[in-house]
Design a protein around this nucleic acid. Structure first.
Lengths: 112, 112
DNA sequence: TCATTAATTAAGGAGTTGCTTACATGACGG
DNA sequence: CCGTCATGTAAGCAACTCCTTAATTAATGA
């Protein structure tokens, strides 16, 4: 495909970091300000802001401004897309079919 | 929550590339050699090898040697782990609860 | 007005990713 | 044995990631 800036790549890349996953887990229990999200992590505020920017670019959170606070809210739509992809690729039925295919191929011998 | 070399991070990072996702989609329809996997892509063989190494490190494929061919086979177990994580974070029930929580908070006013 | 609080932007550095070309390995078939 | 086919390893490069510190914006409240 192309350059890895498509929706699904952005979502999976956003999920590929333990800090960001922990942030999403926190947000799953309710909206939070940047400060509240930062609290569990031994990390500078700019680092937190950058993680949130990655999550926002992937569409996984929304930031609304109230006075000097940014309230972050979880958005689950992109997770649906990711979930669809994963679910499509872990069916038992297809896996067994593949194993059968492989067996036949081996029995035939010759070049794959 | 440390350095991003944990199982789940490896899987999500492996999925965060369209070329690798296409490879997995291909493997989902049956095992294939490196050459067969490389065929659809305008990309050097070393690049293909490196993508396969990423998938192998994440536990998403297995490579078995037969003569001069490496046959790649899909492994879906790591996808189960990824699927579990995603599913845990997109429940409608919890989302509504969070929205309610947020509304109450706003009605109360004051600092979050 | 001015210090404080909340968060972002800017700039930079160490390490990683995703590709390349050139070379190496190892099995097969004449 | 020797050329060929299938694949991997080495080395290098541009771009990106994840963190840092320093400076900036913007709202609050005495």
């Amino acid at each position: 495909m192309t350059d890895g800036t498509d929706e699904l790549s952005l979502v999976f890349r956003a999920l590929a970091d333990p800090t960001r996953r922990a942030m999403l887990s926190r947000l799953h229990r309710g909206s939070a300000t940047v400060g509240e999200l930062a609290e569990p992590f031994a990390m500078s505020r700019p680092a937190i802001s950058q993680h949130l920017a990655v999550l926002e670019r992937a569409g996984l959170i929304e930031r609304t401004v109230t006075a000097q606070w940014r309230t972050c809210t979880l958005r689950t739509e992109p997770l649906d897309e990711a979930s669809d992809w994963v679910e499509r690729h872990r069916g038992e039925w297809n896996e067994r079919f593949d194993l059968l295919d492989e067996q036949l191929r081996r029995m035939r011998g010759g070049t794959p």
